[in-house]
Design a protein around this nucleic acid. Structure first.
Lengths: 122, 122
DNA sequence: CGTCAGTGACTACATGTGTAGTTTCATCGA
DNA sequence: TCGATGAAACTACACATGTAGTCACTGACG
C-alpha cells in the first residue's frame, strides 16, 4: 500500500518528479508559480512527505536535497486503480463512457485512445 | 461547484442512489452490509450530507425520509473530470494508458471501449 | 398512565490537511 | 570575530473526516 499523498502534497511531488534532487527553496520556487503558497507551507509539505518516506532527503552541507522515492508512474497507477474501483466498480468502461457522455472527450482524445487500444491488441 | 462528498459519505450516497427515499435505519441496514459501521455513524453521515444539501429530507411522521439531491451521473462526471484534470492534465488518454500498462484492462474491457468509441464517432 | 423502543439532535474525539509563524542553529561575509 | 542570513525544526491552528456515544422526545403498548 503506497502511502497516501494529499492534494497539496501532490503539487509538491509534481515538481520533484520533473527534476530532482532539489533544495526546499528550489521546490518552493517552482510550486509558487502554480499555487499561491508561502515558502513555509511548501517546507511543511516536504517534511510531511519525508516523514512518510515518499521523498528522500540527502544532506548537502547545511541544507537538504529532496528526491522522490515513489515513482510517478507507480503512484498514478495506484490512485487510478483506487479511483476506478471506488467509483466505477473497477471497470474502466463506465468511466470512459461517462467522460464521453459529458462531452469531456475530444475527437483528439478518441483517436488517441483508439490508437492505444490497437497497440494493446497486438 | 458540486459539494464535496467524502469517501464514507459516498458509500451512503450509493445506497440512496439505488433506491430512495429511505429512512435512516433503512439506509444503515444497506450500508452495514458493505461497511462495518454502526447505525450512529451512518446517521451522522446522513446529517452531514443533509447539511451540505447533497441529500434532501422529508418529514414522515416522527422520522425523516432521505433522498439524493445530486444525481449520480452528475456527481461521477464531476469527480472524474476533477480527477483527470488534477492527475493527467485533463487528458483521458494517459489515464487509460496507465490502466492498460498496469494490466488493469482485460481484453473484454478493450473491446467494450472500442465499441463505445465507434459509437461516439457517428 | 407510565415505560420502552426508535429516532433525530447534539456532542466527542483522534487524525489528516491546508496553511502558516517562531525558534534555533550554522555559516558566510565584513 | 560577530552579526546578518538562510535553512531546518518545531509549533500552531482551524476545518474536514472517520467513527461513534449520549440526550431528549414521542408515539406505541401493556
Amino acid at each position: 500500500m503506497t502511502e497516501r499523498i494529499s492534494d497539496a502534497e501532490h503539487a509538491v511531488m509534481e515538481v520533484l518528479w520533473k527534476r530532482a534532487p532539489l533544495t526546499a527553496t528550489e521546490v518552493a520556487d517552482q510550486v509558487v508559480q502554480e499555487k499561491d503558497w508561502s515558502l513555509q507551507t511548501v517546507k511543511t509539505l516536504l517534511s510531511r512527505l519525508a516523514a512518510k518516506a515518499v521523498v528522500g532527503t540527502e544532506r548537502d552541507g547545511r541544507r537538504f536535497l529532496y528526491s522522490p522515492l515513489v515513482e510517478r508512474d507507480a503512484y498514478l497507477t495506484g490512485v487510478s486503480r483506487n479511483f476506478v474501483d471506488r467509483l466505477f466498480g473497477g471497470k474502466v468502461m463506465p468511466l470512459v463512457a461517462h467522460l464521453a457522455e459529458a462531452d469531456e472527450l475530444s475527437a483528439e482524445d478518441i483517436r488517441e485512445i483508439e490508437e492505444l487500444l490497437r497497440e494493446l491488441k497486438k
